[in-house]
Design a binder for these strands. Structure first.
Length: 877
DNA sequence: AGCACGCCGACT
DNA sequence: GTCGGCGTGCTC
C-alpha cells in the first residue's frame, strides 16, 4: 500500500499537498525536503506530515468531493530533517497566524540554496538551426519572410545551440529589442492624452517572459525550437578552496636533502616544499602564490607525488570581512572590549540580577527592558547571554536592519569568539548559507541577526533578545507578513525560553503588555556614568519663516549650533526623514505636479542622477523643462530631502567634511560600513541622513543632533504616525552626548505643540504613552484592539472598491465578533499601475477574525491574487 | 508564483 | 483566418 506524505510547496497561498511515496523510496521524515511535481513544473517542498493511505476510498478529495489523482514524489533530498520540528512548527504557526500559505512561511525559514526547482529552457532544433543559418547567409536584415521578425530574432538569440532559460531569453529580447521588432509600427504613440502610461516593462521580467511565450510556442509548433525542463539549484553551495599538503614522499625527500633521484627541482619548488614542511595543516594555493609559489609550480610538484592538493570546505566569514574594529570606529571607543571589565551602575546591576534570575528558571517569560538611550542595554544583553551560554543553552539576538548588525555582531564576537553566527540581508547568499549550516550543525552558541534570523536553526534555545523592539523593520512588509518580535515571543513560548525586549521607546503594544502583567517591566532611567540626556531645543519654523523667508532649511539656531561644534572639533548629525533633492515638481501656471504614471504619488527629484523618481515603483524620468500637462516653462521644485540638506550644509560651511547616509547613498554593498567607519574615525564632521542615522550608533564625539522638519510623517494617514515621530525624535536625540561632552538636540518643526514632539523633547515616554493611548482608546486602534488590514487590487478603482465591498459584507455577515470598517480607497490609491481599496477588521477576538478570513480564502482561493492581508499591520500606507 | 487556456479586438 | 494582449483558474 503506497505511503502518503503531506508537503508544503513554495507556492503562495497553496495549502499542503498530498503525494505518494513510491515503494522504492524510503519514506521521508518530517522536515525533510522532497522534489515534487506541481502542475507542469518541479519544486522543492518540505515534508510536514507522514501518513498511511486509508484502507479504501479516496484519500484526498477536491472541493467538489471528486477524488484527486495523487502524484508521486520525484526524489527525497534528505535522510534526516532539514528543518527541525521546532522551526517547522514555528513556520506553520506563522502561516496560520498571518494568513499565508504554509509553503510561503517555510520558505522564510529556509537558507539560500536550500531549494531546487525546475526551469523551462528552450533550445534550438536542427531544423531551427538550418532556418537561422539561412537568415544569416541571405545577408538581408529583414530575415526569413515566413517568420515574424520577433520570432526570427528569438531564433537568432538561440542560434548558439545551448538551452536558454525563459527569463534570460526574455531579458535578452527586451535588451535586443526583439519584442519591439514584433510591434508592427515603430512610430511613437500619438501625443495628446496618453491613455496608457508607459509601464516600466523592463522592471517586470515576468511581463517580458509572458510576451515571448506565444512566440516560442509558435516556433515550437514549427519544430524550430524545443523545450527542456532543467533542474536549477546548487548541489554544492559550500565554498571550497584548494589546499596543498606535503606528501610522505615529499617529506622524505626534504629530510634526505637534495636527492640524486630528483635533480630537476628548481629553487621555487624547493621553496614550496620548505613552506609546506612548516605547515602540517597544508597551505591554500592562494597563500602559496602570494608567497611567490605560482600554481603551476605546485602542479609540477603534485605530478611528482611530492605534494597533494585537496579541496577543503571553508566557511565564509562575514564578521571578519566587515568588522569595524579592524579600524577603530563606532561603538568601539566606548563599549568594545570593556564589557567584561566595566562595573555596572547600581541600576544596571539591579536589572541584570533580575534578568539573570528570570533566565535561570528555564521557562517561558518575557521581560521588557525600558531603558533610556545610552543606559547600557547592550552591555546587559551580552552579560545575560554569557550566563545563558554558560548554562549550556543558546542565544538568539535580534537587531533591527543591517545598520547595527556589524557593530553588535563584532561586539558579540569579541565576547563569544567563533561560536557566533550572523544572519542579515546584506550578506551574500553564500555567506548566509554558510552561517545557516554552521548554526544547524550545532557549533554555534549565539546568533546575531535581523528579522529573518528569528528562524535560525538553533537548538537548546534559552534566551531570545529583541533589541530596539519597537523598530518597524521587524515587520516584513511582504508575504509572509510576520513581525519578528512577535514570532520571537512565540518561539520562546514553544521552546520554554526567556525573552528580553529592549527599547528606549517601547512599542505601545509591548508597554501595554508590560502594564497588564504579561511582560515583566524593568526600567533603566539613567545613562551610564550618569551622563545627562541631550538637552533638547525646539525651533518653531513658523517664526523662522516669518523672519527669514520661506526658503530657509537650517534655522539660525541650528546654523549657529553647527558652527560651534565645528569650531570645537565635535561632530554633528542632521536628520531629515525624506530622501532626494526636491519632493515634487510643481507648475506655477496650471498648478499640476509631476506624478508617477503608475502610482498616486509625486515624483522626487534626485539631483545626483538628474532624474525624477517614484519611491514606490522605481519609475524614473528626466526632470522636464516644461510642464507635462500645460507645457508652460514655469516649473518649480518644491519640498526638500536629504540631498538638498547636504548641499545646503556644504554651501553654508564651505570646506566642511560632510556625507549623506540614506538608502540612495549606501546602495552598494559595504558602503554603509565604510561610511559609518569614516564618521566614527572622525574623517567626517557632519553626517546628514534619514532615520538610518538614528539607529543605535554610538559616536562619542557627536554633541549636536539637528532635526529638520520633525513633522515629516505626522501628516500621514497612519494611526502610528505620532508613535513613529516620538520614537524617531527620541532615538535620534539619544545619539548626542554619548561621550564625555554633553549633547544637544535642535528640533525644527511647524507643530511645536504636538504631543509627540513635546514629549520627545522632554524624553518623557510615560507621558507620551498616556496621551497616545487616549487616542488609541478613542479610535479603537491597537493595542486596544487587534487590527487586520486587507487591500484589494484591481484594474480600475471602481472594481477594487466593489470587490472590497463584497468581501467586507461577507465578513460582516459571518460573525459579529469583530467590526469591519470600509471599504475605502487605500492611502496609496494607485500603486504600480493597480488601483487599491482597503478595509479593516477590528476586534479583540483574534481567533474569530482569523477564522472568518480563512473561510473567505478557502471559498474564494482566486482572491489570493488580488487581495493581501496584513495581520497586526505596522504601516498601513 | 508559474503556466496553460480561452476570449476578444485588431489586422492581414 | 491569425496574432497578440489579457483575464482566469489550477497546482496533490
Amino acid at each position: 500500500m503506497p505511503r502518503l506524505i503531506s508537503v508544503a510547496v513554495p507556492v503562495p497561498g497553496l495549502d499542503l499537498l498530498t503525494y505518494r511515496v513510491p515503494d522504492e523510496f524510503d519514506p521521508p521524515v518530517r522536515g525533510a525536503r522532497v522534489l515534487v511535481p506541481v502542475g507542469s513544473r518541479t519544486v522543492t517542498g518540505c515534508v510536514v506530515g507522514v501518513e498511511q493511505l486509508p484502507e479504501s476510498g479516496t484519500p484526498v478529495d477536491d472541493p467538489d468531493g471528486q477524488p484527486i489523482q495523487l502524484r508521486d514524489v520525484l526524489a527525497v533530498l534528505d535522510d534526516e530533517p532539514y528543518l527541525a520540528d521546532a522551526i517547522l512548527d514555528l513556520a506553520l504557526w506563522v502561516a496560520e497566524y498571518y494568513l499565508c500559505g504554509p509553503g510561503e512561511a517555510i520558505a522564510a525559514a529556509m537558507p539560500p540554496y536550500g531549494s531546487i526547482a525546475s526551469e523551462r529552457r528552450v533550445r534550438i532544433t536542427a531544423a531551427g538551426r538550418d532556418r537561422a543559418r539561412g537568415d544569416q547567409s541571405s545577408g538581408c536584415s529583414v530575415a526569413d519572410p515566413g517568420l515574424l521578425p520577433g520570432r526570427a530574432a528569438l531564433l537568432q538569440a538561440l542560434a548558439h545551440g545551448r538551452p536558454v532559460a525563459l527569463r534570460t531569453l526574455a531579458s535578452r529580447a527586451a535588451r535586443g529589442d526583439v519584442t519591439k521588432a514584433t510591434r508592427s509600427s515603430p512610430e511613437p504613440p500619438p501625443l495628446g492624452r496618453a491613455s496608457q502610461p508607459p509601464l516600466e516593462v523592463s522592471l517586470r521580467s515576468e511581463a517580458s517572459v509572458r510576451r515571448i511565450q506565444p512566440h516560442l510556442a509558435a516556433l515550437e509548433r514549427l519544430g524550430l525550437v524545443e523545450t527542456v525542463q532543467a533542474l536549477r539549484g546548487r548541489s554544492e553551495a559550500f565554498k571550497s578552496i584548494r589546499v596543498a599538503f606535503l606528501t610522505a614522499h615529499g617529506a622524505a625527500c626534504l629530510d634526505r636533502g637534495p636527492s640524486p633521484r630528483l635533480p630537476a627541482l628548481g629553487t621555487r619548488q624547493h621553496e614550496a616544499l620548505h613552506l609546506l614542511h612548516g605547515a602540517p595543516a597544508g597551505l591554500p594555493l592562494q597563500v602559496l602564490s602570494r608567497r611567490g609559489v605560482p600554481a603551476d609550480v605546485v602542479r609540477r610538484l603534485a605530478a611528482r607525488g611530492l605534494v597533494s592538493v585537496r579541496q577543503v570546505r571553508i566557511q565564509r566569514d562575514p564578521v571578519a570581512l566587515s568588522d569595524p574594529f579592524f579600524g577603530s570606529a563606532g561603538r568601539s571607543s566606548s563599549t568594545a572590549g570593556q564589557v567584561a571589565e566595566r562595573s555596572l551602575t547600581a541600576e544596571q546591576r539591579r536589572v541584570f540580577e533580575r534578568l539573570t534570575e528570570l533566565s535561570r528558571r528555564n521557562d517561558f517569560r518575557v521581560a521588557l527592558v525600558h531603558g533610556v538611550t545610552g543606559s547600557g542595554k547592550t552591555e546587559l544583553y551580552i552579560r545575560l547571554a554569557q550566563s545563558v551560554v554558560a548554562s549550556g543553552r543558546t542565544v538568539l539576538l535580534l537587531v533591527p536592519e543591517i545598520a547595527l548588525t556589524p557593530a553588535v555582531a563584532s561586539l558579540v564576537r569579541r565576547t563569544f569568539g567563533s561560536r557566533v553566527a550572523v544572519q542579515h540581508s546584506a550578506l551574500s547568499s553564500g555567506e548566509r548559507h554558510d552561517q545557516w549550516h554552521r548554526i544547524r550543525s550545532g557549533g554555534i552558541d549565539v546568533v546575531v541577526g535581523t528579522r529573518s534570523a528569528v528562524f535560525a536553526p538553533l537548538d537548546r534555545l534559552g534566551l531570545l533578545i529583541v533589541d530596539e523592539e519597537h523598530d518597524p523593520s521587524y515587520k516584513q512588509e511582504e508575504a509572509p507578513r510576520y513581525h519578528a518580535r512577535d514570532v520571537a515571543v512565540m518561539r520562546a513560548k514553544r521552546a520554554e525560553a526567556f525573552v528580553v525586549l529592549g527599547s528606549a521607546t517601547p512599542s505601545l503594544e509591548s508597554y501595554h503588555n508590560g502594564l497588564n502583567g504579561r511582560y515583566e517591566r524593568l526600567t533603566l532611567e539613567r545613562r551610564v556614568q550618569d551622563r545627562p540626556l541631550a538637552a533638547v531645543r525646539i525651533v518653531d519654523m513658523r517664526l523662522e519663516y516669518a523672519e527669514a523667508g520661506p526658503d530657509v532649511i537650517l534655522s539660525a539656531s541650528l546654523r549657529e549650533g553647527i558652527g560651534d561644534r565645528l569650531a570645537r572639533g565635535e561632530q554633528v548629525l542632521v536628520l531629515l526623514n525624506r530622501r532626494g533633492y526636491a519632493t515634487a515638481v510643481f507648475c506655477r501656471q496650471c498648478a499640476a505636479t509631476l506624478e508617477c504614471p503608475n502610482c498616486s504619488v509625486s515624483l522626487t527629484v534626485h539631483r545626483a542622477s538628474r532624474r525624477a523618481r517614484c519611491h514606490y515603483c522605481n519609475y524614473a524620468t528626466g526632470v522636464p523643462g516644461a510642464c507635462t500637462s500645460c507645457a508652460a516653462p514655469y516649473l518649480e521644485q518644491v519640498g526638500f530631502g536629504t540631498e538638498r540638506v547636504e548641499a545646503e550644509v556644504t554651501s553654508l560651511f564651505p570646506g566642511v567634511r560632510v556625507a549623506r547616509l540614506d538608502r540612495d547613498a549606501v546602495r552598494r554593498r559595504g558602503s554603509l560600513d565604510a561610511l559609518l567607519h569614516r564618521f566614527g574615525r572622525g574623517d567626517l564632521q557632519i553626517l546628514v541622513g534619514t532615520q538610518m542615522i538614528a539607529k543605535g550608533h554610538d559616536f562619542p564625539d557627536v554633541t549636536l543632533v539637528g532635526v529638520i522638519s520633525a513633522d515629516v510623517g505626522l501628516g500621514l494617514a497612519d494611526f502610528r504616525a505620532a508613535e513613529r515621530t516620538f520614537q524617531l525624535l527620541t532615538q535620534v536625540a539619544g545619539r548626542a552626548g554619548r561621550g564625555e561632552k554633553p549633547g544637544e538636540a535642535i528640533i525644527q518643526t511647524l507643530y511645536p505643540d504636538h504631543y509627540s514632539i513635546r514629549h520627545a523633547c522632554g524624553q518623557d515616554y510615560v507621558s507620551f504613552y498616556r496621551d497616545e493611548m487616549k487616542f488609541r482608546q478613542a479610535m479603537r486602534y491597537p493595542p486596544v484592539v487587534a487590527l487586520v488590514n486587507a487591500i484589494v487590487r484591481a484594474r480600475t478603482f471602481g472594481a477594487a472598491l466593489a470587490d472590497a465591498a463584497g468581501l467586507a459584507n461577507r465578513l460582516r455577515a459571518v460573525s459579529d465578533a469583530y467590526r469591519v470598517l470600509g471599504p475605502a480607497p487605500a492611502p496609496l490609491g494607485r500603486l504600480r499601475g493597480e488601483h487599491r481599496a482597503q478595509f479593516f477588521l477590528k476586534g479583540s477576538n483574534r481567533a474569530a477574525m482569523r477564522r472568518a478570513l480563512q473561510a473567505l480564502l478557502r471559498d474564494q482561493p482566486e482572491l489570493r491574487r488580488r487581495m493581501s492581508i496584513d495581520v497586526d499591520p505596522v504601516s498601513i500606507l
